[in-house]
């Protein structure tokens, strides 16, 4: 029983991390109609900035601030220099150009930091396990990630529904030309949205970097999952990204755990593990396919 609860927490934690990545991706697509493959690179930028500053100053928190600043700055610069020229192009051009950005970011990071992974540890205040009610031991840091992710989800909801910037973002999603005609500085709005999405990705990179590895190329596997989340949730919908992220997080974690157990009930252990793990790695894509069969534009997407 405690194992199941621990796995549910793990699924939740993976889900909120994916949400931080997917929120920016889906916002950028919703507002600007842009497919940004370089989103994973901004995640990497956040992790490297956090690791570098945390190592130099000894403070994880300064590192997190640096990760937000560096990723937002990188996002803003990329938007001003490259992305801006792509809005009117078709999606294939956008994919090509942002793929080129992945290569530029990866080799640039290697040039700055070298080929060996950087060190980044969890802050002392959050290290070690904590005992939850019911005697479940769980990593304190993972709990903190869950809390931070949920807080940001609430904050993002408030930002989009309650503030003037949020109104503009929603207006930009429904009709770009019209809000420009109404006198809103649309290019500034685009830069802000892009930098916001980048900052969320950078924040995710810093948080996850502390328990995974900070190295070149760390962003791309997460990017693929984030795309799955966006597609499941409905392209352009932040609410969809949240629900999709939790679904993917739960499916992935529980699939990895339960499928081998399930096959173990009628197969010998070693083939059960290999069949189970093979199926588990497909589980989220099967989930995506099922969602698309039922709702072709995703759970919260606009009907096509």
């Amino acid at each position: 029983m405690t194992l199941i609860i621990e796995q549910l927490l793990n699924g939740l934690q993976l889900g909120v991390m994916l949400f931080l990545m997917a929120a920016g991706l889906t916002l950028v697509f919703g507002v600007m109609g842009l497919i940004n493959l370089a989103h994973g690179s901004l995640y990497m930028v956040g992790a490297f900035a956090c690791a570098a500053v945390a190592t130099a100053t000894g403070s994880f928190w300064l590192g997190v601030i640096a990760s937000l600043a560096a990723a937002a700055a990188a996002g803003a610069i990329v938007e001003l220099v490259v992305i801006r020229r792509l809005y009117s192009r078709d999606h294939l051009d956008q994919v090509l150009a942002t793929f080129a950005l992945i290569l530029v970011f990866s080799e640039g990071t290697r040039w700055l930091f070298g080929s060996f992974p950087l060190f980044l540890d969890v802050p002392a205040a959050f290290s070690g396990p904590v005992t939850l009610p019911g005697g479940i031991e769980y990593s304190r840091y993972r709990l903190a990630i869950i809390a931070a992710g949920l807080l940001i989800a609430v904050g993002l909801y408030a930002l989009i529904t309650k503030t003037r910037l949020g109104i503009r973002i929603r207006a930009g999603e429904s009709d770009r030309e019209m809000i420009a005609a109404l006198g809103v500085d649309i290019s500034k709005l685009y830069t802000i949205v892009f930098a916001l999405g980048a900052a969320l990705a950078g924040f995710a990179g810093a948080l996850v970097g502390a328990i995974q590895s900070v190295q070149v190329g760390m962003g791309e596997p997460v990017l693929i999952l984030a795309f799955v989340v966006v597609v499941i949730g409905g392209i352009g919908s932040v609410k969809g990204a949240f629900v999709g992220a939790l679904l993917v997080g739960m499916t992935d974690t529980l699939g990895r755990f339960l499928l081998p157990v399930f096959f173990g009930t009628f197969m010998d252990p070693s083939s059960a593990t290999s069949v189970g793990s093979a199926l588990a790695s497909m589980s989220i894509y099967i989930l995506m396919a099922l969602v698309l069969v039922a709702k072709p534009s995703g759970l919260y997407g606009d009907a096509i």
Partner: peptide
């Protein structure tokens, strides 16, 4: 990169 499930 995430081994929470395996560690459990």
């Amino acid at each position: 990169k995430d081994y929470a499930s395996e560690i459990a």
